[in-house]
């Protein structure tokens, strides 16, 4: 599997660029992945990224986008729990891009 150098440290990623070992994740990794995905990280992005990491810690999976949207709505409010808001933050798919930045595997059944 390919290796990438992030802030002087080597990380293993899969063929689509997702971090292989979740436990290696840190903010440098998130920033690197964000640049790869052409996403400029703001507090709103971090809110979603952190939410995903908590979700994964709790359930051991990366949620499908529909599930993510619903769960975000419950936790952060209806104005954030909708496709429009999440796609504005992550134009190429909130589950896909935000998961990558959060160091999670690609969601099962991800669209």
């Amino acid at each position: 599997m390919p290796m990438v150098d992030i802030a002087g440290k080597d990380y293993e990623v899969d063929e689509e660029g997702y971090l292989v070992d979740l436990s290696q994740w840190n903010e440098d990794v998130a920033k690197y992945m964000a640049v790869e995905e052409k996403v400029e990280l703001t507090d709103s992005h971090w809110e979603v990224v952190n939410f995903l990491r908590e979700y994964y810690a709790e359930y051991q999976i990366a949620p499908a986008v529909r599930v993510l949207t619903k769960a975000i709505g419950k936790k952060l409010g209806a104005e954030k729990g909708n496709n429009k808001y999440l796609y504005e933050l992550f134009p190429y798919g909130p589950a896909k891009q935000a998961c990558k930045i959060a160091g999670l595997p690609k969601p099962t059944g991800c669209i």
Partner: peptide, 14 residues
């Protein structure tokens, strides 16, 4: 190995 037993608790969200 991965402890996926906790994933069953996510099924409600699906």
């Amino acid at each position: 190995v991965k402890d996926f037993s906790r994933t069953y608790r996510a099924l409600e969200g699906y």
